[in-house]
Design a protein around this nucleic acid. Structure first.
Lengths: 215, 215, 215, 215
DNA sequence: CATGAATGAGGATTCATTCAT
DNA sequence: AATGAATGAATCCTCATTCAT
């Protein structure tokens, strides 16, 4: 029946609209300061409806998180460009740039992902969502690992463990974003985000390209 | 009279005990979930007494932050060992180890420092405290910058800007701690914290020691 | 649908019931000593509900004030009896009697109106309510002014400024009510309220009827 | 011993200084908003000391009240000028002027006296203070009654009961002060306080001087 | 499905009063 | 007498969640 289809479509739209509203409100006011009332108002539904689509305020947050993660993974995949034949370091630079642009274009999502720690996710979020977060994160990391591995295979990088190396790069780039994400620390480092980000990337790449002579 | 001195000492002890209690409660429950009542209870004072020593819940947080920062800076200074004659890379490794041990021995303080972003510090915390945080942070970074500069002066490191390089290292190490600080991400990376931390440190050091051939 | 209408009606009733409860509690315990909890309890709603209908404790007070004022103005209008042809002094006596009966039948409202000073109304009460108070007060006074003016036009009263004269009468009558409103002062004056009220009225009337020979 | 005398004197001074401080604070912030802490601070004594001299915050208020009343009675006595031979209406005008100047020069005390109603004085204030308030009030009224009686004796005023008449005048004058004491009502009456006060006084006087022809 | 009124458990903060020193 | 640290009851208001319609 077309009715059922429409029903489902409408349902989906409502859900999206609540999520969109929540995203706006959570980011504008901060998760704790944000109220479900406000989310409902922005979404132009009643408060009760919000609870029809999401179990709790925290669940909304979890779904937002998932959305952000999906967006990031999509960007990383595009950056990796599996179909194209690219040099390992080009791939890595593309991935790094994608990560940076995600940070810059979706700062709210980025912060959300970094805030994973808060609020004991495992306890308050449905197991299912938690699993999805894990899976998606793995897929994201996977692209980076592959690029590093490619470099190793091509003899360009002297690294023993590609996954570990990918972890180091992620940590370094992410570290820059986190540190400079706060104005106070930007003041301390007296550095522009892009500059430091670039420097971190190149330093790590150079570290891989060197022979591991005893330091 | 000894009375005044004892008074002051007792006052100081109470303050400490409240701070200690707050630290415990804030970290166990998270700042937002923590209640002043609970802090008072743990500190074994009445709720009113807490407000005798601190203006507000947020002020307590600020002082905790300051304490943590002081502790970190002290450790960094000890690690740098200004009086001793040490090689640049030794100094850097010592600093890195000190940072790691701070993370491991004072995980609460570490998380607190990383959580600077939350809660709009500047708005809720007295300007004076904010300034102190800035000053102390700068002092902490300073030791790292100096060590890098020493390496440059000794011709060991090929870096253009010592402060920027220090920033990169800090970001990388910090990035490891932040990423692996969460069990979920530890799962993703399938890496032990110490191993990855070490890898990050060595990668960056190697990156500096290489000649900056065009990558 | 009748649903919407009933909804509105129920809402209105709730509002009334809260207002009624507040009136009782505020007057029994005094505004400052009264608690919102108690108001809620008397109104048989939850505390939250009170805040659903009124922004704050002070707003409730403001609305109570307005109610009292409306009641008074209504009584004054009835007493003036615009449609009937009455002698000026009859009108004034009727107005005075209406004021007295308002004092006696609605002592709470009277005290509320007299307590306008307390609590810096202008600062805590919405501008809109403040304006309404002003408007209604003017309407109330207006009836008295008109009656005096009528007496002047009829050549009965020798007064230069009808509004000022009305002010004097209001002040005198009100003064009696305020002074004797307190048991302590009733003791001091050793007078019954009604007697003194009557005396004040007649004294002022006589004062107007006299030729203004130099006193 | 001179020591005991000095002790007593110092004690008295402390008491005064607390009362002075309380007056300032109570009037500046309003009784409810005022805190004992602030009173102690302004009085430059410790909070404990305040309770050494006064049983409670409310007791301080009661004593302040008494002070105000004493001041008023003193002014009235001076205005009556028992020793001088003055016409009755002159005496009354002097008394009225004294009352007005008390209102203008000691607005805080005036408001305090008018606020007698608040806070269930009898319940919270020592019986002894209550009795003093009563006595002093009677003395104040007495001067007015005497002046009216003098006018009656001299054949100037046609009043049956001098005490009642005095009550009427007091009510009228007081009514003006109370009504115009609030900016809102000053707006409503569009009258200056002095003008209306004068008008009330003259109206009542004229009312007394008239023959009581049937109104 | 959608609504929105109702709930009530908190939670931060204040302040009069007490009491050991 | 004087101090001032400690107390803890009291209070206003918020907001996630439920549920009758």
């Amino acid at each position: 029946m077309a009715t059922a289809a429409r029903r489902r479509r409408e349902r989906e739209q409502r859900r999206e609209s609540i999520l969109r509203a929540a995203r706006e409100v959570f980011f504008r006011r901060g998760f704790h300061r944000a109220t479900v009332d406000e989310v409902a108002e922005v979404a132009e539904v009643s408060k009760g409806t919000v609870y029809l689509y999401f179990e709790s305020k925290e669940t909304i947050l979890a779904h937002l998180l998932l959305e952000g993660l999906n967006e990031l993974v999509k960007r990383l995949e595009r950056a990796f460009a599996p179909e194209e034949a690219l040099a390992a370091d080009v791939r890595i630079r593309r991935l790094a740039r994608a990560y940076l642009s995600f940070f810059q274009e979706e700062p709210d999502y980025f912060r959300l992902l970094m805030a994973l720690d808060r609020g004991r996710f495992q306890e308050t979020v449905p197991e299912e969502v938690y699993q999805q977060v894990l899976t998606q994160s793995l897929r994201g990391l996977h692209w980076l690992v592959q690029a590093v591995q490619q470099g190793v295979d091509e003899g360009r990088f002297q690294v023993e463990d590609a996954r570990q190396a990918a972890g180091v790069l992620w940590a370094a780039l992410n570290g820059v974003l986190v540190l400079l994400g706060h104005p106070l620390r930007r003041e301390i480092l007296a550095s522009e985000l892009e500059t430091l980000y670039e420097a971190a990337l190149e330093t790590v790449l150079r570290g891989w390209q060197c022979e591991g002579r005893k330091t």
